[in-house]
Structures are given as structure tokens and as C-alpha cells.
Amino acid sequence: MLTERKADIDPHIDFLVITRPSARNFDMTKVRRNLVHALALAHVIEMPNENEEN
């Protein structure tokens, strides 16, 4: 899903993603946008600009 950002993620970092029940209704675009946002907030990747999120 985020293979285009794989090089940006330190291979020594492990993380666990826990979602809210409402996420089961998300399409893949929304899942990706939320995951990129969460990784950026955790300082795992840099915050993408608006064009990169889509």
C-alpha cells in the first residue's frame, strides 16, 4: 500500500496500527491518507504535501 514511501521508513522501526471500528467503511484512498498522516504525526515519515497524499 505504501510501497512508494517504503524508502522513507527506517527499517529498524516496528509499529502497530490499531484502527477505530469506523475505519472498516473507508476506501483504500482514505486508509492510505490516514495511515500517511499517522506516520507523519509519529515522525516516522515527513508530512507529505497535498499532492503526495492522493
Rank of each mutant, 00 (worst) to 15 (best):
Asp8Ala: 15
Asn34Ile: 02
Asp10Ile: 02
Arg5Pro: 03
Ile18Arg: 12
Val17Pro: 01
Asp27Leu: 08
Thr29Asn: 06
Asn25Ser: 13
Ile13Glu: 01
Ala7Tyr: 05
Thr19Trp: 10
Thr19Gly: 09
Met28Val: 09
Pro21His: 13
Arg24His: 14
Phe26Met: 10
Leu16Pro: 08
Pro11Glu: 11
Pro21Ile: 08
Ile18Tyr: 05
Val17Ala: 06
Asp10Ser: 04
Ala23Val: 13
Ala23Met: 04
His12Phe: 08
Leu16Glu: 15
Arg33Ser: 14
Thr29Met: 05
Asp10Gln: 00
Met28Ala: 13
Ile13Leu: 03
Asn34Lys: 04
Lys6Val: 09
Ile13Gly: 04
Ala23Glu: 03
Lys30Ile: 09
Thr19Leu: 03
Phe26Leu: 12
Leu16Cys: 15
Arg20Thr: 02
Ser22Pro: 02
Arg20Cys: 06
Pro21Met: 06
Asp10Ala: 02
Arg33Tyr: 08
Thr19Ile: 10
Arg20Lys: 14
Asp27His: 08
Thr19Arg: 14
Ala23His: 00
Leu16Ile: 15
Arg32Gly: 01
Arg33Asp: 02
Asn34Leu: 10
Asp27Phe: 00
Met28Thr: 11
Ala7Gly: 00
Ile13Ala: 04
Lys30Asn: 10
His12Met: 02
Arg24Leu: 04
Pro11Asn: 10
Phe26Val: 11
His12Asp: 04
Arg20Val: 07
Arg24Glu: 05
Met28Lys: 11
Arg20Ser: 09
Leu16Val: 15
His12Tyr: 12
Lys30Arg: 13
Pro21Leu: 08
Pro21Phe: 11
Asn34Gly: 06
Ala23Cys: 12
Ile9Lys: 08
Thr29Ile: 05
Asn34Thr: 11
Val31Met: 02
Pro11Trp: 12
Thr19His: 00
Lys6Arg: 14
Ala23Leu: 01
Phe26Cys: 01
Ala7Gln: 01
Arg32Phe: 01
Thr19Ser: 14
Arg33Val: 00
Ser22Leu: 03
Arg33Ile: 03
Thr29Gly: 05
Ser22Cys: 02
Arg20Ala: 06
Arg32Pro: 02
Ile13Ser: 00
Thr19Ala: 09
Arg32Val: 12
Ile9Thr: 03
Ala23Trp: 12
Pro21Asp: 13
